[in-house]
């Protein structure tokens, strides 16, 4: 197995190398303990967080997420979730960079509306340009549009992250063909971000040739998040191996696996 593992190269985003191709969120868990256990079991190196106003009325000594998910152990990927225009997303990233002592890797998402949480591509492109000019390494949540993916890549995005289906919907990959089109041309990592519902969805994304998968709800909203975290870890590894192994061709007709000679009925 060691030789085979050498055939693969680790996921590298903006010069940073990660041992896992599974990236996970920290939202929607019952408590910090559950989040910590699930994230540990997932084997993820990259962990997303949101940036929000501090609750100034509350106990300032209450535990902080970054005490539980330590930036010394994980690569923290702040997101711009909840931003509906480029300006808010850029401000959020700038706050995140200050929060994380100059760490400049961010997940940009600029949403179109509350109902679909579908990316607003125009605002996303605008924010991406501003952030890249400001020295950020930007992983971009976007629609599964190959032309937009190329546009983002040519402006210097560090990773393209098309949705598999709507955020938090768990519908899996609704359009594997467009993902394949993006993968065909991309020269930066492509990660499916959003829509993964269960392990087979993550495996399929990897089998298509995606460089990684980013998910949150599929683990956090499973009845047993820690067990699902392990399933996702294995699914991403299995899907990656299957991609590298190059699957057999599909055929319309049957082809026997056992010899057709020497049967006792001959």
């Amino acid at each position: 197995m060691t030789d085979m593992q050498r055939m693969d190269v680790p996921l590298t985003v903006a010069g940073r190398t990660f041992s896992s191709r599974l990236l996970v969120g920290t939202g929607k868990y019952r408590d910090f303990d559950e989040a910590r256990a699930a994230i540990e079991e997932s084997g993820a190196d990259v962990v997303t967080v949101a940036v929000r106003r501090s609750n100034l009325g509350q106990d300032p000594d209450a535990p902080n997420l970054l005490d539980v998910i330590s930036p010394s152990r994980y690569t923290i990927l702040p997101n711009t979730a909840g931003c509906f225009n480029a300006r808010d997303a850029v401000r959020t990233c700038q706050l995140a960079r200050e929060l994380l002592d100059g760490h400049n890797l961010v997940k940009l998402e600029v949403l179109g509306d509350q109902k679909t949480l579908y990316p607003n591509v125009m605002e996303t492109l605008s924010a991406a340009r501003t952030l890249i000019d400001d020295g950020f390494d930007v992983m971009v949540y976007t629609s599964d549009d190959p032309i937009v993916a190329q546009e983002l890549e040519s402006m210097g995005a560090s990773a393209i992250m098309p949705l598999g289906s709507l955020i938090g919907s768990g519908q899996g990959l609704l359009n594997p063909d467009t993902l394949a089109l993006i993968l065909e041309h991309a020269r930066v990592p492509v990660l499916v971000d959003a829509g993964i519902g269960t392990a087979s969805d993550a495996a399929l994304a990897m089998e298509l040739g995606c460089d990684g998968v980013l998910l949150n709800s599929a683990i956090a909203h499973a009845k047993q998040p820690v067990l699902m975290a392990r399933a996702m870890k294995r699914a991403v590894e299995a899907g990656r191996d299957a991609y590298l192994a190059e699957r057999m061709p599909r055929r319309q007709e049957a082809r026997a696996s056992s010899p057709t000679r020497g049967l006792i009925t001959e």
Binding site: G25, T26, G27, K28, Y29, A35, T48, V49, A50, V51, R52, R53, S54, L56, N64, L65, L66, I76, P78, N79, A81, Q94, L95, A96, R97, E98, L99, L100, I167, G168, L214, L215, N216, S217
Partner: peptide, 27 residues
Amino acid sequence: IVPRSRHAETELSDNDRVEIVHAIGGG
């Protein structure tokens, strides 16, 4: 943005707008 190193020297005036944020769980 006010970098941590400049908190002490950054003066506030009446009606200034200040945002204070932290990291929370998110996907």
